[in-house]
Design a protein around this nucleic acid. Sequence first.
RNA 1: GGGGUAGUAGGGUAGCCUGGUCCAUCCUAGAGCGUUUGGGACGCUUUGACGGCGGUUCGAAUCCGCCCUACCCCA
Length: 481
Amino acid sequence: MEPGMEEETGTLPPKSAFSEWYNELLWRAEIMDVRYPVKGLYVWYPHGFAIRREVYRILREIMDREHREALFPLLIPASEFMKEAEHIKGFEDEVYWVTRGGKAELDIPLALRPTSETAIYPMYALWIRSHADLPLRIYQVVNSFRYETKHTRPLIRLREITSFKEAHTVHATWEEAEEQVRKAITFYREFYERLCVPVIVSRRPDWDKFPGADYTLAVDTIMPDGKTLQIGTAHHLGTHFSRTFQILFEDKNGEQKHAQQTCYGISERSIAALISLHGDDRGIILPPDVAPIQVIIVPVIVGKRKDEILAQAASLATELRGGAYRVQMDNRDLRPGAKYYYWEMRGVPLRLEIGPRDIDAGVVTAITRDGERSVLPRINLGEKVRDTLSGFEVRLREKARHRMEDGITKVTSLSEIPPALEKGIAIIPWCGERACADKLAQQSGGDVLGIITDTGKSVRKEGSCIICGEPAIPTLMGRAY
RNA sequence: GGGGUAGUAGGGUAGCCUGGUCCAUCCUAGAGCGUUUGGGACGCUUUGACGGCGGUUCGAAUCCGCCCUACCCCA
């Protein structure tokens, strides 16, 4: 940086410089500390971890409606891991191996799970006997390890994924499993709706599906720099794994059949999207649902009325906590302005100020994190706070949705693709052939994400392929993280 | 995978080539005391570092080797 061009200290890099903004935000807002001395591993600060807890509370709430949570071991014996050929091929280059216990070499090396199919399915083979055991729907929230060789990035590309929610379901028929994949997408849509994160769903091309799947649906969003981030996937596994791991059930006619399976996952990339889409030049912005502190009360103290003001602020906090808000009062010995900046950096949705003027007028001054100021009467404050917060949440969701819509461009010719990718996603007509997809990628600098669908099927033909002119299907292209 | 640059206190930098008065410096960094408080307060006092391991040397932030980590460029 040129001398004299320094940023005023105390401010973030502008969000328009997304990469720098993101890196600095992570520690300034106390989400992740990137200084842990192992590549690709990062530390959750308490505030980041508190956000994680709220986000995963919502995810669990949704999952618990028709899944049960369980927990499988981190270590997977090589003998199990190496059973499914496609799966091995997809992961073998990024597996960490435990080969010693103390000084002794292990007879069978143990893999640190990169994903848990091969830990879970041997047990499913024991658990499942008959059609009465189906469907089986289980999930777990665990860490997973992948030896990433590309550039690692906190919350986005990790060697330890700390927060992998993976669901694994088993069904009697292919169609039932297909229906489960479709439902997984509706669960994820609901989850991201609650985070106010807009998403777009597509079916990944066959060469980009999960290793060992019949097909893969993926949930993407557009980051502020225009690149796409995959923030959820759902896979129809068919009988690939049930054949390998001998997951058989006896159907109503007494016949032994291979089970049909699905799996689907979400990781802390959800939190990367959450903070990236909503944040601004002052810090992160959290939807009330996931804010560890929803309301921060800042007493504005003047010397001679100090006790009175603090008492009023404290009773305000008590009252609002009774209304089930997550409330904190900031009575540190700092100037009010310093506290405003502090809590704005950390994303608190609503700030209530109470000072001599407010007390005398019987009001509280309210400022939402997006800068809307209002004066609320002190009586029935709980109701007013609820309305203020829900209005804020709606604005946040709508703003993010509009930016996403602006980032998606429908194009019909090759030359239109690069400018569309600059902004975000291009919707192009594509025939489905790999050769054409490779040419598209090569000539536009983007990747084919997949065909637009929420269900994996019933895709309509529309237009003709940009490369070969054959009948085409609307397809997403983007620059993927 | 290949190449390059760098790592000095909580953060930002100087010093390194030419080894020694090096107790370096700045900040919304930390600690203490006091005065303050409606958008980043001020004064005084004070704490703290040379990425890790090994080597050369009477003496290493500085020279040499290996390792780790970060960033950039190319595949």
